[in-house]
Design a protein around this nucleic acid. Sequence first.
DNA 1: TAGATTGTTAATCGATTAACAATC
DNA 2: TAGATTGTTAATCGATTAACAATC
Lengths: 209, 209
Amino acid sequence: MKGQVNISKATIDRLPLYFRTLRLAQDEGIDIISSDELGRRLGITPEQIRKDLASFGQFGKKGVGYYVNELKRNVGEILGLNNHWNIAVVGIGHLGAALANYQNFVTLGFNLVALFDQDPNVIGTTVNHVKVEDIRDMKKIVKERNIHIGIIAVPAAFAQGVADKLVDAGVKGIWNFAPIKMEVPETMHIVNEDLSIGLSSLSYHITRK
Amino acid sequence: MKGQVNISKATIDRLPLYFRTLRLAQDEGIDIISSDELGRRLGITPEQIRKDLASFGQFGKKGVGYYVNELKRNVGEILGLNNHWNIAVVGIGHLGAALANYQNFVTLGFNLVALFDQDPNVIGTTVNHVKVEDIRDMKKIVKERNIHIGIIAVPAAFAQGVADKLVDAGVKGIWNFAPIKMEVPETMHIVNEDLSIGLSSLSYHITRK
DNA sequence: TAGATTGTTAATCGATTAACAATC
DNA sequence: TAGATTGTTAATCGATTAACAATC
């Protein structure tokens, strides 16, 4: 891997797509894949793919292509998926339960190790074989189970409070589904997933057809 | 509104954020808001906000700011939210059920009018006061209820088939949660929501800390 | 009027696309 | 060797930031 300066957000967001496509190619028993074929499968230009990959190192063979197993391993390593991060979902409503059941996370190597809620009626129930625990025990459990990532799936009004607790508990990153701007320390990594954006932009486009 | 040429995707994706923040400001009883204050609330520079808005028209008053009600109405119109699109969710598993219950869509003016599944055990049940119907009746129901947007929440293996059915049924747009590249006619608007990207990019960043 | 704030133009920064030498 | 395909540099395109005139 190079100095890795100046990797664009767009590039990083494409890496998971490469990873998934390589996994599928692997399942198909394909040994070698070209940037052309990868691009065809993803709807991305081959130049873009070569550029993205080249910013992390030389993973291909000129005149040949990329070895699927090797490239998948490399992309997985770049994304840090081999760390097998421990994750916890906070807020076990409809969305939280859906996330707790999301199988693609398993495929990516994440381990769901805890679920938290506030509601006594929800605490003690089990979702996807994981017990829902009291949010008041979060700090203790985050330490005990070495939880790296907290997923916020509570209503907007409670999200900042949950973020504060996650930061205090010492997670490395937060994946936030609440539609608000969070205040977290500069050093904390946070990714916001705002489902309103996708649907609204779809509305924008169909309005103009 | 101007000719509206060359509106960037980034700009369109920020409009829903402006809309939401304006709604909240409205709830607080705020009449006038500056790009500075909007920017502070959203973590976006005021220049960016003014530029975004200015690409659709002149909504502000120099030396004063933006009238909250008026700007919200305008942004809503730009996004086409006043069309009150009828939406349907296909695939009522954990994620589909969560989407069917997502209250923020109501806030944005979308109407959930149908749910579809294949599984006889799911068909006939009710989620968020809407009955789950047989996916085989999709075309008829899409016509009858004038469904504009189909939301795909089925496993990846079935997603292309569902997309084909939605296209055939005549929806205007598709919001796709299955992690695959869909093949749809050029004229069909499709927005892909890939939850793996957010979590993977978080993994990338915390790996490098 | 003086102060505040928009809308717009110009400058910069960043990302994608094109082209092609290197090489398997 | 000839053909194929990567990796990299240069050119283009697009988006953000800076600056400031217009004006409320």
